[in-house]
């Protein structure tokens, strides 16, 4: 089945090239590049991918077409890119969840939709630390209050997430594990509904990217307790990091990075890496990211690879700790 499916996917990927009959001649790129975004328009990957594509176009002098291929939490688009021809004309803008899906597949004994070694990292583009949010009218003013209360009544304080094994779930799981507390998990179908559940007081905590919750903090509806990042977030200078608070290994980012199918020739990889270095310096790109309040955290392929390996290992452990969940709790 998977062989057949792969053929279908490859054919589909090829079909997205407007003029694939043209032979590549001269230096890469000689024809338009397709950037697969495995999430719907308007999502985090899309909002980062489009400014990147626009800046790449200016540098490479070839159109970079964003193709949204959502489905199965990103697995559809990612496997499309993983199985595409490694010629530099298909690239992928993916999020942290790229490391979770194969791990979850393993957990359930499923045929994996793609393997991580099918994709080669090009550059890390953004990394947004998550923020621990509670309601402004909750009794917890600090992480210490929260942890102490959670120790007193294990499994009673609940948190919402964007979905089981999703990035927001994993972030909370890392924190709970490090703090040695047990929380109640209520998954929702996306970050929006998860935040709505906290606003409506149906759950008590929620981990989120900073930009979505800033207006709620300003309006005095929600209170940030701590940040998962290495350093404090510019927009929330008073909020400590978990590291400062003594939770040493609690570090988590929702990151976005550019990938190419593994086996893409070295000269093309070099062109892509050089392009990305120029993209992050592009003024239009910078202003777009500023408006989205998403911090750019550019890292070239070698450092990105190191970052990715560490992140993937951390996520794999978190997925295994959660394990298979057979009931509703």
């Amino acid at each position: 089945m998977s062989g057949f499916l792969r053929i279908i996917l490859v054919v589909a990927a090829l079909a997205t090239f407007p003029s694939r009959t043209l032979q590549a001649q001269g230096t890469y790129p000689t024809r338009p590049i397709t950037m697969i975004v495995p999430f719907p328009p308007g999502g985090v990957a899309d909002q980062t991918g489009r400014p990147v594509a626009a800046a790449m176009e200016k540098i490479l002098k070839q159109p970079v077409v964003v193709s949204n291929r959502p489905g199965a939490g990103g697995a559809v688009g990612m496997s499309l890119a993983a199985n595409a021809k490694p010629d530099g004309y298909t690239i992928l803008m993916a999020l942290s969840s790229i490391s979770i899906i194969p791990e979850a597949d393993k957990l359930f004994g499923r045929q994996p939709t793609y393997r991580m070694d099918q994709l080669a990292p090009v550059a890390l583009v953004t990394a947004d630390p998550t923020v621990l949010m509670v309601r402004a009218d909750s009794p917890w003013k600090t992480v210490k209050d929260f942890v102490e209360d959670a120790r007193k009544r294990p499994g009673e304080i609940s948190f919402s997430s964007s979905g089981i094994y999703g990035t927001l779930h994993m972030a909370m799981e890392m924190f709970a594990h490090s703090a040695g507390i047990k929380l109640k998990h209520v998954p929702f179908s996306g970050a929006g509904p998860a935040m709505t559940a906290l606003l409506g007081n149906h759950v008590q905590a929620f981990a989120s990217g900073p930009s979505v919750v800033l207006p709620q903090i300003q309006a005095g509806k929600l209170r940030p307790l701590a940040v998962w990042g290495d350093k404090r977030v510019a927009a929330l200078p008073d909020v400590p990091t978990f590291k400062e608070l003594g939770f040493k290994d609690v570090e988590f980012y929702i990151w976005s990075g550019l990938f190419a199918p593994a086996g893409t020739p070295e000269p093309i990889m070099k062109t892509l890496r050089d392009t990305m270095r120029m993209v992050v310096a592009d003024p239009d790109f910078k202003s777009a990211m500023e408006k989205l309040q998403t911090p750019v955290d550019y890292r070239d392929a070698p450092e990105f690879k190191e970052f990715w390996d560490k992140d993937a290992a951390e996520l794999a452990r978190a997925v295994q700790r959660v394990g298979r969940i057979e009931g509703a709790q």
């Binding site: 930009s211 979505v212 800033l214 207006p215 300003q218």
Partner: peptide, 13 residues
């Protein structure tokens, strides 16, 4: 998302 691209984050305010 379309509003956020313009730097406006829809919220209670």
């Amino acid at each position: 998302a379309a509003l956020m691209v313009h730097g406006i984050a829809p919220g209670p305010l």
